[in-house]
């Protein structure tokens, strides 16, 4: 499988206005395969957002000291790049931020989605087609003329995703994109992310501190104090409840429930990650107890 992003011995320290360095990442070695879906977990200050921002040059050597090798689409980005090269990386690695309001620049939905292609200098008729396509991909067709402040948080965030998709990125990073949404909005955004991943064309990296959102990923990376603390499939990660707790992370609610049942000696078997899986296991458990 082709690697979209390769990190080798990457360390990063922020430089403050007085020139002092504050380490944020320490010796990170990671690769992201084309078309994969990776969730990065970690509590505040673990360096997860810093990591994401390094990948699309939001953080550059101007912001601090970068060591090691960061290869994006085979291109080393820890070094001097021309402005065109920088913008090309940012186009190919799109990013959806936390606050939907701070990503929407235009006064109507369609113009906002058009913002990226406009910046790329795409011809107007092509922009039109791209915008329609991107809005359809996030299920927001019919909202073209809406003013952003008339949309719900989840709808705004889907518009923001459409804005990123309109630039035809090959990798999309979701930087805590559901953190400010209500459960309904979160559900809609997660569905969009899932569909994006299933389309197979886009590599998805989501950064989150909601454990439930990480269960659908191919791979989970847990960061702690700027270092990779654990990596593995969601099952491998979330069944190590004690280890996660040691870095003040929880597990999905249903996993937590079965972990406790197991400790009480009521349940034996593997810990479920999904609610439905849990419900079936619970049903089985009750049947067995009766019988």
């Amino acid at each position: 499988m082709e690697n979209v992003i390769e990190l080798q011995n990457v360390s990063f320290a922020y430089r403050d206005s007085e020139g002092n360095l504050h380490p944020a990442l320490n010796n990170i070695n990671l690769t992201f395969e084309k078309g994969s879906y990776t969730a990065i977990l970690g509590h505040n200050g673990s360096g997860k957002s810093t990591l994401a921002k390094l990948l699309n040059l939001v953080i550059t050597s101007e912001d601090g000291k970068i060591d090691g090798s960061i290869k994006v689409f085979g291109k080393e980005i820890n070094g001097t790049l021309t402005e065109d090269e920088e913008y090309e990386i940012r186009r190919r690695v799109g990013m959806v931020h936390q606050n939907p309001d701070d990503q929407i620049v235009a006064t109507t939905v369609e113009e906002d989605v058009a913002f990226g292609p406009e910046n790329l200098g795409v011809e107007p008729p092509v922009i039109r087609a791209t915008v329609d396509e991107a809005l359809a991909a996030v299920g927001m067709t019919g909202y073209e003329k809406f003013a952003p402040h008339r949309l719900s948080g989840g709808q705004k965030q889907r518009v923001a995703i459409a804005g990123v998709l309109a630039m035809h990125p090959e990798c999309v990073i979701f930087d805590e994109s559901t953190a400010m949404l209500d459960p309904e909005g979160r559900e809609a955004v997660l569905k969009t992310v899932d569909e994006l991943h299933k389309s197979g064309e886009v590599t998805v990296i989501t950064i989150t501190h909601y454990m439930n959102e990480a269960t659908d990923a191919d791979r989970v990376i847990v960061l702690n104090k700027g270092e990779v603390f654990m990596t593995g499939t969601p099952e491998e990660i979330f069944t190590q409840v004690d280890k996660l707790r040691s870095v003040s992370l929880g597990v999905p609610q249903v996993t937590e429930l079965f972990y406790r049942l197991k400790n009480e000696g009521v349940y034996e078997g593997k810990l479920p990650l999904h609610t439905k899986e849990g419900a079936l296991a619970l049903n089985e458990l009750i049947k067995n107890k009766r019988g």
Partner: peptide
């Protein structure tokens, strides 16, 4: 935050920009 998001979406001033 907005300026960061705009950079992520390829904004680099008015030169070479088209309009919907």
């Amino acid at each position: 935050d907005l300026s960061e998001a705009m950079i992520c979406r390829g904004y680099r001033g008015g030169d070479g920009r088209t309009k919907l």
